[in-house]
Computed example of a mutant assay.
Amino acid sequence: MSLTLSQLNQLIEYAREGYVLVVYKLDRLGRSTKRLIELSEELQGRGIELVSIRDSIDTTTAVGKAMFKMLAVLAEMERDLISERTKAGLESARARGRVGGRPKKDNKQVEKALKLYDTEQYTVKEIEETTSVSKATLYRELKKRKSNIEMN
């Protein structure tokens, strides 16, 4: 039987100290290793054991607890390594003059879009098609302009 996320949450909420939560495979409990670790810590804190049939992990035994903790340590190390590599890559890119993020919209096009909007002769859709400025960008700029007027 496969549980939905809300059913799984209800099951975990219902479980009491001394219960054993049996799953076919650990990935049924969470999509990420981080979520699995958080969940296992929550269960452990509440005195609820965890058994995974397919992964041969049984936290009711000393070996099972040790195995699960070792997996948690490896997962944490993996997350840290990914984070370090990402930071190093970003620093390297910055050193080469690269800047991350989305490219800025051409200011001339944004100004043109604002002028067309002010004429009240065009729909936002028409302004988007004419200037290639998205609706979100147009409204963001209008909001900035409004807050600048209110500040003065």
Rank of each mutant, 00 (worst) to 15 (best):
L11M: 15
S83T: 13
G45D: 05
Y117P: 03
N9E: 03
G45P: 03
R94T: 09
T137W: 04
L3N: 11
E150W: 11
D80F: 00
G47T: 12
R16P: 01
T4W: 02
K115W: 09
K112E: 10
E141L: 05
L90W: 08
Q7I: 08
I57E: 10
K125V: 15
V20P: 05
S134Q: 02
T61L: 03
Y24G: 03
K135S: 03
L138I: 13
I48E: 09
Y14T: 10
S32C: 05
A62H: 03
G100E: 13
S134Y: 04
L39Q: 01
L5D: 11
L36I: 15
E49Q: 12
E13L: 11
Y122W: 12
L90A: 08
E42V: 03
S2W: 10
E120N: 14
R54H: 11
G18M: 09
E84Y: 09
E150N: 11
S147M: 13
E120S: 08
A75H: 12
V22Y: 12
L5C: 06
R35P: 00
L21D: 02
E141P: 00
N9K: 08
D106H: 07
K65L: 07
A66T: 14
L114P: 04
D58K: 05
R96H: 14
L43P: 04
E91T: 14
R140D: 05
K135W: 02
G64W: 04
E49I: 04
M70F: 07
R46E: 08
I12P: 00
Q7P: 00
A93F: 07
K125N: 04
I57M: 06
K34I: 13
V133R: 02
V110E: 00
I12H: 03
